[in-house]
Simulated assay, not measured.
Amino acid sequence: MKVLYAHHPEDVKHYTTEKLREEFLMEKIFAKDSIELSYSHVDRIIYGGAMPVEEALTLDIGKELAASYFLERRELGVINVGGDGKINLDGEVYEINNKEGIYIGRGTKEVLFESNDSSKPAKFYLNSCPAHKRYPTVKVNLENAIARPLGEDAAMNKRTIYQFIHPDVLESCQLSMGMTVLEDGSGWNTMPCHTHERRMEVYFYFEMEGDTRVFHLMGQPQETRHILMSNEQAVLSPSWSIHSGIGSRNYTFIWGMCGENQDFDDMDHVAMKDLR
């Protein structure tokens, strides 16, 4: 588990491209028969991926958590972006197929990931944050998620936001999670952009062609930077940073947020004229 410490925006102004990528980009999310995780001191979020191929994978603790088991004081959100699979939670099995997700409440002791077909392995993308109480485990798919169509062709940002872990769908302590699907011909997400000082965010980009790239924009509105991203990579966004992007083709991304505020529309919008 890679540990990332908090970053002051005044320090980030001086980062090189290499340093930005080292501190904010998770380049490898999925590896065969492995769980790859990053632990950020920004709101203590843990994010990464589990890719079971030949064997089932158990979500184990590391010394970073100082806990008896991973979800002793945490909650977890999972969305499968690969082949069909299943998650075993303390002996109860949930089928989690492509673009299906699940919220797993605090206190679940065993979390076991499996693929139904090793030739088409599941790819479970994970977000976890601290939890103050236990809420019920709930499976979510595109049919029972909240769908919010946004954008227009002329602005190259026609997309649908699917809210999976959201107060109007299910209860969680602080984790919010969902998926945004851009339509053909669209490349922009979240522009005009915003910040939200009351919660942080992680973007995970996927369903990208081999030569497709996303220019992910970050930084304070008056001091922006970019990170060039490939398929199945994730980028950390502190609360003080904008988080937007433009792709060379359309793509899909999963957003995950944690912090003290779960109001999805509570954003500090930034006018285009104020970006630098």
Score class of each variant (00 low, 15 high):
Gly49Lys: 09
Gly48Val: 04
Leu65Lys: 06
Leu57Lys: 08
Ala56Asn: 12
Val53Glu: 10
Leu59Arg: 08
Arg74His: 09
Glu55Lys: 15
Glu92Ile: 14
Val78Ala: 10
Gly82Ile: 07
Gly49Cys: 14
Met51Tyr: 08
Leu71Thr: 10
Asn80Gln: 04
Ile87Ala: 09
Glu55Gly: 11
Leu65Trp: 08
Glu64Gln: 14
Ser68Trp: 03
Gly82Tyr: 03
Thr58Leu: 13
Gly48Ala: 02
Ala67Trp: 09
Glu54Leu: 09
Arg73Gln: 14
Ile87His: 07
Val81Leu: 10
Lys86Asp: 10
Leu71Lys: 00
Pro52His: 13
Leu89Ile: 11
Arg74Glu: 01
Glu72Asn: 03
Ser68Phe: 00
Ala56His: 09
Tyr69Ile: 11
Lys86Leu: 13
Ile61Met: 15
Leu89Val: 02
Thr58Lys: 15
Gly48Ile: 01
Ala56Ile: 03
Glu75Tyr: 12
Gly85Pro: 01
Gly62Thr: 15
Asp60Lys: 15
Val93Gly: 10
Val93Trp: 14
Arg73Glu: 13
Gly91Asp: 05
Val93Ser: 07
Glu64His: 15
Arg73Lys: 15
Ala67Lys: 05
Glu55Arg: 15
Leu89Pro: 06
Ala66Ile: 12
Gly82Cys: 07
Gly77Arg: 08
Val81Tyr: 08
Glu72Lys: 11
Glu64Leu: 09
Ile61Tyr: 01
Ala50Thr: 12
Glu75Thr: 11
Ile61Pro: 05
Asp60Cys: 12
Thr58Tyr: 11
Glu75Ser: 07
Ala50Phe: 03
Lys86His: 12
Met51Gly: 01
Lys63His: 11
Leu59Pro: 00
Pro52Ser: 10
Ala66Trp: 04
Leu71Ser: 04
Ala56Phe: 08
Asp90Cys: 05
Gly91Gln: 07
Gly62Tyr: 09
Leu76Asn: 06
Asp84Trp: 05
Ala67Phe: 02
Ile87Pro: 02
Gly83Ser: 09
Lys86Cys: 14
Ser68Thr: 07
Thr58Pro: 06
Asn88Gln: 11
Glu64Val: 14
Val78Gln: 06
Arg74Ala: 00
Lys63Tyr: 12
Thr58His: 05
Gly48Thr: 11
Gly77Ala: 13
Val53Leu: 00
Leu65Asn: 00
Gly83Arg: 06
Asp90Trp: 08
Gly62Pro: 03
Ile61Lys: 14
Arg74Phe: 03
Asn88His: 07
Tyr69Met: 00
Leu65His: 07
Thr58Arg: 14
Glu55Ile: 11
Glu92Lys: 15
Lys86Ala: 13
Arg74Gly: 07
Asp60Tyr: 13
Gly91Ala: 04
Lys63Ala: 13
Val53Trp: 05
Leu65Phe: 09
Asn80Thr: 03
Asp60Glu: 15
Pro52Tyr: 12
Leu76Gln: 04
Leu76Ser: 06
Gly82Phe: 06
Phe70Met: 00
Ser68Cys: 00
Glu75Gln: 12
Ala67Glu: 12
Ala67Pro: 05
Arg73Pro: 00
Asp60Ala: 15
Leu89Thr: 10
Leu71Glu: 04
